[in-house]
Structure formats: C-alpha cells, structure tokens
C-alpha cells in the first residue's frame, strides 16, 4: 500500500514530509506507546503507530529506518517534534482515530504487524 492510501484510509493529515512521501510503499506496522518496545520489535520500513508526540518518537523512527510515524487520537506534536521530523526526513501523520481503530483499519486493508507474536523468533522476548 502507498503511504498516500494510508493517509486517505485514516482521514489523516501529513504534518511533516512532502508529497513525494505519499508514493512510499508500506506493508507492515507496529503500534506502541513504549519506544523501547518499538526498538525491540519494529522492523525497518514499517509504520510506527503511537499516541506519543515527543521528539523521541522521531529519533526512534529514524534509528529504525521506519517508513513513517502515525500519531493517533488526534494529537498534534509540538513544533520542535515536527521540525525534527522534517530534518530527519521522517513523514509524520496525524489521525483522529484511536490506536485500536487505526490499527484495525490498516489491517483490514492489508497492512500486517512487523511480528505476529513474541517468542520463538530470534528477536523475541518471552
């Protein structure tokens, strides 16, 4: 799916990033408010779905080479977070849907989790 389709499905706004980012191809996502969990389990090229709006979300996404950040529950990050996202080239999207609805709507349209469940994988905690 293209990031542009994600934005449409979520009736979302692209707050950082430019029109080029809409053609980015995305297949997987990870939802969490704990950045350490994002670092542990999210994969490169994934969407990060979160309710957190601090600049640490952007730095975490950058470290992981995430495709984009989707901020849920209608939150708008502070100006410095948006500035950092622009600087680091990470598209940042805001949707009014709650985390559960955001995940569900993307899943129904073919986006899957980075990992299905934890345990039994090289990366997994039990």
């Amino acid at each position: 799916m293209k990031l542009g389709d994600v934005i449409e499905i979520l009736e979302a706004k692209l707050l950082a990033g430019d029109e080029r980012h809409r053609s980015l191809d995305v297949k997987t996502a990870f939802s969490a408010d704990l950045m350490s969990d994002v670092l542990a389990f999210a994969k490169a090229g994934s969407l990060i779905l979160t309710g957190l709006t601090t600049s640490q979300v952007v730095r975490t996404a950058s470290i992981l080479d995430a495709a984009a950040i989707i901020i849920v529950r209608g939150k708008i990050p502070a100006e410095e977070t948006l500035k950092l996202a622009e600087e680091l080239g990470i598209p940042l999207i805001s949707t009014r849907y709650i985390l559960f609805e955001t995940s569900g709507r993307l899943y129904a349209n073919g986006i899957v989790g980075c990992v299905e469940k934890i345990g039994g994988t090289a990366n997994g905690a039990s």
Partner: peptide
C-alpha cells in the same frame, strides 16, 4: 516514562 522509555527493555535490547 513520559518520553516512552523506562519499559525495562533497554539492556535487554542492547544484548539482543
């Protein structure tokens, strides 16, 4: 914790 850290995964992540 407000920054989204302190989940108790840090050292474990480093080791992994």
């Amino acid at each position: 914790r407000q920054m989204g850290f302190g989940a108790g995964m840090g050292l474990y992540n480093i080791k992994t």
